[in-house]
Design a protein around this nucleic acid. Structure first.
Length: 571
RNA sequence: GCGGCUGUAGCUCAGCGGAUUAGAGCAUCGGUCUACGGAACCGAGGGUCGGGGGUUCGAAUCCCUCCAGCCGCACCA
């Protein structure tokens, strides 16, 4: 089925195409009517016509059938009011449509790069946003019909591994594994670092170990693999706690690209892009300068012949296009990396690895701030463990549940607290424009009032409770939507706007478009719920209202699931 | 110095180039109220949209400039 918006838009396009193929009618939700058409003003301006006159012509040629009534307003806007029969048709279609009117996109493959923790290092707040936003996008794109390939670009290579492996040997493999498997990565890494900085002999051993690692020494690589496997197992625990879909199979770390780096260099050289500068092999993409105004290089191979992360990122672009067939390459990485990506992609484009039809986008985001509005750290200046953050939220939710429902079964409370706690954290992260920084305020996130995850879960649970009261399965049957009450009509319009919200979130990679929609829908529902008794209504009104409730619950549940948020039936 | 992001009500944030009242949430104040889950609903007060120019019939929105904050700017990722 098609969304209401698309159906109306198609009719408008038939008229607007005469102003130039694909002219956008600029159809938008309106507070004056159901939708407004803003596009006439722009067309009139470009053709030097009177917008009002043009509007009249558009209306005369516009065939809305029985979809909507139209009137010209102001200098040349069109106000559209959808007819009840159209709303009825669309709502009934939704009742039997699992997708609630959301259209699918075919033939596209999205490669989404997100989370990216470092092996043998703790996951901390710094990984929260990439993980949560990336996972929401993965779910949204999957639902839209994209083939989604998640890439967890973990830091599993480089000079620190010499010291980490030596430290592992010092501890004894078994003891080291024991430490790592309980997730105490901070201690492990810090001890290694401290020895590296204070102990010359250890430092030297570490250097030699890096050489062995890069040379492919079997035992060294086995030890390296132990570190990686232990870390990946730990990451999985964190993802479970957060309710994130990433699995060990999605881990494709930096080391994966090692065998491709020589080819990257060769191809860049063949393309005549490579320049030697201060002993390093570089490409100088246009438009980037250093502090002093000199051209800024992408360093492909360092003076010591080692490869930097730019080389790895270049190899990744190449691999994702040529091997994975990616058509939409998304990088959910913090804003500070913006210049790095811009440069790497400029090089990839120059090398011919990025065809025109491939979309590549940096899904950047702001920082998580502490109460002092600075980067979120503990009082002593240490990073905050991600797993601890989730645990705090779950604990808070558990306390709130204990207070409200003291008789709840402890196991049920445990499960619910987990669902609510992570909903609180995820929703808080997803509900603001990702570009901005935000202050991490657990108190507000876990609050059950206002624009929060728990509030939406509660709204959904309330709707579900109505159906529990029925004590039996419910069928929509041949329900008809009359929408006599304003609150019913408002809810209906909200329900039918779901596809627009999903599409907006997908195309702009802005999950907050969807959270905003869901919050608005929840409010429309509660207003309806106050004003319109459901179970005590007379038939056929009762059936109509039950159908509205059913659609609301399904929309909230599906919408939340696309963000990676659980929608418990009861709470 | 160059580049990026941010600056909207007391606080946290929406606002997709449009129209007489710039919207939510929290907080404040006032209502609803033996309520199908009140973790609710209805309403009120509160804003020179960082400052200044410009484009336009029209600018929170586009362009320029200034101010403030954060971040990045060659061999760590």
């Amino acid at each position: 089925m098609s969304s209401s918006y698309d159906i109306v838009l198609r009719r408008l396009r038939r008229v607007f195409d005469q102003f130039g193929e694909g002219t956008d009618p600029v159809l938008r939700p309106s507070d004056r009517s159901d939708y407004q058409v803003n596009g006439i003003m722009a067309v009139a301006k470009s053709r030097g016509e009177n917008p009002r006159v043009l509007a009249e012509r558009v209306v005369a040629e516009l065939d809305l059938g029985d979809l909507a009534s139209v009137e010209i307003a102001g200098p040349g806007f069109l106000n559209l009011t959808l007819t009840t029969s159209f709303l009825d048709t669309q709502l009934r279609a939704n009742l039997s449509d699992e997708r609630l009117g959301v259209a699918t996109t075919t033939g596209r493959t999205a490669v989404i790069d997100y989370s990216a923790p470092n092996v043998a290092k703790e996951m901390h707040v710094g990984h929260l946003r990439s993980t949560v936003i990336g996972d929401a996008l993965a779910r949204l794109y999957r639902f839209k019909g994209y083939k989604v390939i998640a890439r967890n670009h973990v830091g599993d290579w480089g000079t620190p591994f010499g010291m980490l492996i030596e430290h592992l040997l010092d501890l004894g493999e078994e003891h080291a594994v024991a430490t790592l498997s309980i997730g105490d990565l901070n201690t492990f890494y810090r001890e290694a670092r401290e020895k590296f900085e204070s102990d010359e002999a250890f430092k030297e051993r570490s250097r030699q170990r890096v050489v062995l690692l890069q040379a492919g020494d079997a035992e060294t690589n086995r030890l390296w693999r132990v570190l990686v496997e232990q870390s990946v197992a730990y990451f999985s625990e964190v993802y479970d706690a957060l309710g994130v879909t990433l699995t060990p199979a999605d881990v494709v770390g930096e080391s994966f690209y090692n065998p491709m780096l020589a080819d990257v260099v060769r191809d860049l050289d063949a393309a005549g892009l490579l320049v030697e500068s201060d002993g390093a092999l570089c490409v100088f993409p246009e438009g980037f300068t250093t502090r002093e105004g000199d051209p800024l290089p992408v360093i492909v191979q360092k003076r010591d012949e080692g490869f930097g992360y730019a080389a790895t990122d270049l190899a990744a672009v190449r691999d994702r296009v040529s091997q994975l067939g990616g058509t939409d390459l998304l990088y959910v990485v913090g804003a500070p990396q913006a210049q790095h990506f811009a440069m790497v992609w400029a090089v990839a484009r120059a090398a011919g690895w990025l065809p025109e039809n491939v979309r590549i986008e940096h899904i950047s985001f702001g920082s998580v701030l502490g109460p002092d509005r600075k980067m979120f750290k503990t009082r002593s200046g240490e990073t905050i463990k991600l797993i601890g953050l989730v645990q705090d939220a779950v604990d808070k939710a558990s306390l709130a549940l204990a207070e409200r429902s003291p008789d709840m079964d402890p196991e049920q409370r445990r499960v619910l607290a987990t669902q609510i706690g992570r909903a609180a954290i995820k929703y808080a992260d997803l509900s603001t424009d990702r570009q901005r920084d935000y202050v991490f305020d657990l108190e507000r996130m876990v609050n059950f009032e206002g624009d929060t995850g728990p509030y939406l879960q509660y709204a959904n649970a309330r709707v579900r409770s109505i159906f529990r009261k029925l004590r039996g399965p419910w069928n929509a049957g041949d329900v008809h939507f009359v929408l006599a009450h304003d609150a019913e009509r408002s809810l209906a319009l909200g329900l039918l706007a779901f596809p627009e919200a999903v599409d907006a979130a997908v195309t702009s990679c802005q999950p907050h478009r969807l959270t905003g929609y869901l919050f608005d829908l929840a409010q429309r529902f509660t207003s309806f719920y106050e004003a319109c008794p459901v179970l005590s209504a007379e038939e056929p009104l009762r059936q109509e209202r039950l159908a509205l409730c059913a659609l609301t619950a399904r929309t909230l549940t599906l919408g939340l699931s696309l963000l990676g948020i659980d929608a418990p039936e009861q709470m």
